[in-house]
Amino acid sequence: MPSFVALPEVATVKRREFRSTLPALLFLALFFVVPVIALLLRSVLEPQPGLQNYVELLGSSTYLKVFFNTFMVSAVVTIVSLTIGFPVAWTLAIMPSRWAAIVFAILLLSMWTNLLARTYAWMVLLQRTGLINKMLMGMGLIDKPLALVNNLTGVTIGMTYIMLPFIILPLYGTIRKIDPAILQAAALCGANRWQALTRVLLPLTVPGMAAGALMVFVMSLGYFVTPALLGGTSNMMLAELIAQFVQSLVNWGMGGAAALVLLVVTLALYAVQLRIVGNESEGGR
């Protein structure tokens, strides 16, 4: 439980800190809060005052499907990223630092490469006559090409690739911070590799995993480019829907409502994360 009874000196310090953060707060208010409020207003004022935009959004099965797609894809992307990211981060953490630096360089280079270029590259790889289908067919695993693109499969693959670094980097940091002597102690206590992994290492990396997973999940919820390029027309994701409302239909009311639902969900998830990780670090370290 956080304590709200601050000592006088602490309170003074806090007040002074607050004063020094004032410009930043003003900046945030101007560039973040004001547009959100404008959007909120439009969502309840257009085309006429009322909540009808929200009723329509949450009442129609078409739109609910979009929400479902969005959460589904984001969840799968998060889980797959964690599953691939953990062993990668672990390997990076224990490999000689010279090698790790090379892998990081590659990782960062890919992150700095234009997002569109990377997504188009996946399009080429995943299409019916693409490298992946050709390889699978060449190995005789399949006899006709799989539909890997223009659907949610494509979106999931492409987004997992984009999101992986956001899992690997914080997880790498968490694992590096674990004192190797703790694992040596676990070994001397009689823990085999599996027990050391599940009883010591994994619990200690939970904060890093939670941080990475939340970031990936939230980023995935609002992601536009990859779903737009690798997804199909039938199964949309939320960002695409918002773009459609605003650009094609010029319906700012519905667009604003969808955006705000997304924002509320994101903030709620953030609050949950703060609770879990906050408690963890209070008791843990």
């Binding site: 004192d179 703790i182 102690a185 001397l188 009689g190 823990a191 200690l204 843990g284």
Partner: peptide
């Protein structure tokens, strides 16, 4: 893990 030897380290190694 099979030596059954006990050890106390210089650094704190309790499982946090």
């Amino acid at each position: 893990q099979k030596r059954n030897i006990g050890m106390v380290f210089q650094r704190y190694t309790l499982f946090p």
